[in-house]
Design a binder for these strands. Structure first.
Lengths: 161, 161
DNA sequence: AACTATTCTCTCGCTCGACGAGATACTTGT
DNA sequence: ACAAGTATCTCGTCGAGCGAGAGAATAGTT
């Protein structure tokens, strides 16, 4: 019997939790860098990209986004938010529209150009990711999903203290 | 037989690839926000935090980090790197030391204070994450690891074009 | 209806992180 | 010794984001 046996009743191929932690962090680092490089290549700042993602998500969910909501989501104060919206509007990615029902509000409307931009770039990556998922069967994907949800839940809980 | 049987072919609970994509992105967003809030609470900027992580990683691997290497890893130019190192040094998190073998070089030495900072904060999160992993058996953790590695590989490959 | 409080967005002035260009210090090859 | 190369730092500038507060519209109270 080698000393490799019986590491608390587990097999030698068992995944070390710390390895998984580092994998999680490594993945987020890669995704961040990917986003940052995409942003830089298109004359955007990281914040602009995050804003765009938020706007596209909200649009897909059919929600109306105002500068206030956007700034809150991105943890910007009102001055920073105005600057951000100015930038995105100047780039032709979004458009301001006064809300006819409450004229204090401004609706941020995403232009087609922004969707094409997001699609054209992230679309390729998403396709590759989905392709790589093809090497996993349904049960494995379900396990991965459960795992990701569990980890996300922990981080979100930690964030709320 | 209930509809829960036969998961391989068209199970209603099967994980939709796009759901997994959004989970991945959601997780990176949560981790980013967690880091940003930690940084803000300690008077650090996101860049400082990234630098600290890089330095701690390198230290654990026994590598010597110079301002040049650090700036390269963080995609900063030399001026920005000097500013970053100044900041970290002013905060007492690192220390500059001239390399006695090649006196053009500067070694960045991490102070104990920085390790305590990183440990004290990320330590709690890591503990929670490892705890949540306890709800998965060895085979499931192995699957999760394989999945994370596959996704990381795809993103890294996309980044290299 | 007028008056006050509240909500939402924007303007102004400022700070400071990051950039480009170039200076300085040290090392290596001839 | 001298030129070329490498590592770091200095200087001037830009611009994203902050704090404070102004302006515009709505909601609530009497």
């Amino acid at each position: 019997m080698s000393e490799v046996e019986n590491p608390q009743v587990e097999n030698p191929q068992a995944e070390d939790p710390m390895r998984l932690i580092h994998l999680l962090r490594g993945l987020t680092v890669e995704l961040d860098l990917f986003g940052a490089e995409f942003a830089a290549r298109n004359g955007l700042h990281p914040t602009d990209l995050r804003a765009l993602i938020h706007l596209l998500d909200a649009g897909r969910a059919g929600e109306v986004v105002t500068p206030g909501r956007l700034g809150e989501a991105l943890r910007l104060n009102s001055a920073g938010t105005t600057g951000l919206v100015d930038r995105l509007e100047r780039l032709g990615l979004i458009r301001r529209e006064r809300d006819p029902e409450d004229r204090r509000k401004v609706r941020l409307v995403v232009e087609d150009r922004a969707m094409e931009l997001g699609q054209g770039f992230f679309g390729g990556l998403i396709g590759d990711l989905v392709g790589a998922m093809g090497r996993f069967d349904a049960a494995e994907l379900a396990t991965a999903g459960r795992f990701l949800r569990a980890m996300t839940e922990v981080v979100a809980a930690a964030r709320r203290e």
